[in-house]
């Protein structure tokens, strides 16, 4: 106990500081933005997973969530809009020892980068994709996204969104992801546990994290960040194992969270080695 105590005394900063590029903090995310929480949970998982930090690499695309790679004190890449997954595919296939994390947003991963996501899932490239879903394009000032709920107001849907949003876990599952989970930023332990499981799992893992965007989405839809979190507290139902086709986001019926899929199938590299390298 005394040893523990003295160790605690020596530590002067935040326990995750060594995984942060401290000289880049404070980050650019707005007050009440949930990306920082998703990011913090992810760092916590990197720590608790026990994987060697030297072999962990984070790849981001463009957007608010895309800035995450710039704050992690690991090998990290801030790539082009939508292309984090193919960039990460190149990294992973060229050096299979790496644990590759793609940390990006819903616009980056499912609109401009949607094609890459479904194909990486289909190939079962061994990587962990964390998608912070804040229901709009935050970086550019709050435009409609492929995840914006019907009727929601954004700067490009001034009369309300006439389109139907994607259900991200359903797409990931249908494309072949071997691990699919959804949490909100209120569920920090569950995010960390999912990211840890995904890091240690061989295969394409997808974790959606619902997050408030108080400045751009919340403001136009009359939701403060605390109110959004209250919705996450009151209207979410954890249903581990729920079929991904049944988890559309509908606050009226309740937002289904949980670990939906956790199956095993050979990875892209395992199949390549087996089929293309056998003499």
């Amino acid at each position: 106990m005394t040893e523990k105590r003295s160790k605690a005394k020596e530590r002067s900063g935040h326990p995750l500081d060594d995984l942060l590029r401290e000289d880049r903090i404070p980050h650019i995310w707005c007050p009440g933005c949930g990306i920082g929480t998703a990011f913090s949970s992810c760092l916590k998982a990197i720590r608790s997973s026990g994987v060697e930090p030297k072999n962990v690499v984070m790849v981001s695309g463009i957007g608010c969530s895309g800035r995450a790679a710039g704050y992690v004190n690991l090998d990290s890449f801030h790539t082009t809009h939508g292309r984090a997954i193919p960039f990460a595919t190149g990294l992973k296939l060229a050096n299979p020892v790496l644990h590759v994390i793609v940390f990006s947003g819903d616009g980056d991963l499912f609109a401009i980068g949607g094609n890459h996501l479904i194909h990486a899932a289909r190939r079962n490239v061994d990587m962990t994709v964390i998608c912070v879903n804040n229901f709009n394009y935050g970086m550019t000032g709050g435009q409609v996204a492929a995840t914006t709920p019907k009727s929601a107001r954004t700067t490009t849907t001034p009369f309300g969104n006439p389109e139907t949003p994607f259900s991200l876990p359903h797409i990931a599952y249908a494309s072949g992801a071997t691990y699919v989970a959804r949490w909100t930023i209120l569920h920090t332990r569950e995010i960390a546990k999912s990211v840890e499981e995904a890091l240690l799992k061989k295969g394409f893992s997808f974790i959606e994290v619902l997050s408030p965007c108080p400045v751009n989405y919340g403001r136009r839809n009359r939701e403060s960040s605390l109110e959004t979190l209250k919705i996450y507290q009151d209207k979410t139902i954890i249903k581990n194992g729920a079929h991904p086709s049944s988890v559309d986001i509908d606050p009226e019926k309740g937002i289904i969270l949980g670990k939906f899929i956790d199956v095993d199938r050979p990875t892209c590299k395992e199949m390549y080695d087996k089929i293309c390298r056998s003499e």
Binding site: T80, R83, P86, F87, G90, N95, H119, C276
Partner: peptide, 21 residues
């Protein structure tokens, strides 16, 4: 390693990733 990607955008991105690896 050879990989046929889903489009040329992805191919170029993967090439950059592999180079950094």
């Amino acid at each position: 390693t050879f990989i046929q990607m889903e489009d040329e955008i992805a191919a170029m991105a993967a090439v950059l990733g592999a180079s950094w690896a």
